[in-house]
């Protein structure tokens, strides 16, 4: 059953009760949150995702009301992963996006059967681009722009590499848009579904772009990596694509890996296979259409990486 087939009331009842188990790529995560607006948030962003049948649920993500003893007038919420509190309590108006943050944490801290990169991944014609970068590099904006140009969304946050064969596993979830990029993406994708903005978060204003239905329907379809990109948005900069030597690409990917050390030899082998199988380049850009054209050239085989 798809989550969108549940009514808002049914969704809210599950979220407030035993939880709503959601299949997202290779994960089944149980979500719990009784806060007003959480059900609408989840239904808005995950209508095509399947509700897990419950046999295997990897992690429990719960957002619960939190009583602040020193400031009892504050209405706060606390994120819990597998019943353990995580990070400080936040204003309860962030309860719905806290489910997203909890999902990110659950995937990033639990999925040690996969090598996890902090990277956006999109795919076209069976070939995937791994865009690794720290927050604030314009990675999610570029990812959304490529999705608007027909690239399949794997993730704007996680490059999930299967060590056995080096394949990238999709985990298509809402794309996290920050500050100016919200309007940029709205202009690029006028028909896109974007959540209400959440102001004054630690990263400024956040909004979430619903993943395309096709990306969700194909969420169990991996692809092999074809390019490694280290994107960097710089206002006014002309587009430049500078090749990155393999040893440097390895080091840069290492800096963007969440669990390389936990995987030990398997992590090394998976990372080495990745840099040996793909050209890597540092992409500096400011103009979104020019960046899209560059990637289209790569996909068409017209642009040398």
């Amino acid at each position: 059953m798809k989550l969108g087939e549940l009514s808002t009331d049914e969704t809210a009842a599950q979220l407030a009760g035993a939880g709503l188990a959601l299949e997202t790529g290779p994960f089944a995560v149980n979500l719990r949150c009784a806060a007003p607006g959480a059900a609408a948030f989840i239904r808005l962003l995950y209508p095509e995702h399947r509700v897990a049948t419950g046999e295997v649920v990897h992690t429990d993500v719960a957002v619960r009301p939190h009583f602040n003893r020193r400031r009892p007038w504050r209405r706060e919420a606390q994120l819990h992963i597998d019943d353990r509190p995580l990070m400080q309590a936040l204003p309860r108006r962030f309860a719905a996006p806290m489910l997203e943050w909890g999902l990110n944490f659950a995937i990033g801290s639990r999925a040690h059967h996969l090598l996890i990169l902090h990277a956006a991944v999109v795919e076209k014609n069976g070939r995937a681009v791994v865009m690794a970068a720290v927050s604030g590099s314009g990675k999610s904006t570029l990812c959304a722009a490529l999705v608007s140009a027909g690239w399949r969304l794997f993730s704007d946050e996680f490059g999930l590499i299967r060590p056995a064969d080096g394949a990238l596993m999709p985990v298509p979830r809402p794309v996290s848009l920050k500050n100016e990029s919200i309007e940029v993406v709205r202009r690029l994708m006028p028909a896109a579904v974007i959540s209400p903005p959440y102001h004054d978060t630690a990263k400024g204003t956040l909004a979430y772009l619903r993943p395309p239905d096709d990306a969700v329907r194909r969420q169990f379809e991996p692809a092999m990596p074809a390019w490694i990109v280290f994107p960097k948005f710089r206002a006014g900069a002309p587009l430049t694509a500078t090749p990155v030597p393999r040893a440097q690409a390895f080091a840069d990917l290492l800096a963007n890996s969440m669990n390389y050390i936990a995987l030990a030899e398997r992590g090394f082998a998976a990372m080495a296979r990745l840099v040996e199988s793909c050209p890597a380049f540092a992409l500096e850009y400011s103009d979104i259409p020019a960046a899209i054209a560059h990637f289209e050239g790569l996909a068409a085989g017209e642009t040398a990486a």
């Binding site: 040893a247 030990a264 030899e265």
Partner: peptide, 16 residues
């Protein structure tokens, strides 16, 4: 040996 990669003149290795 399988935990060493030499690319151009730079080597990356995993320390067991």
């Amino acid at each position: 040996p399988d935990l060493i990669r030499l690319w151009d003149d730079q080597c990356v290795l995993f320390n067991l």
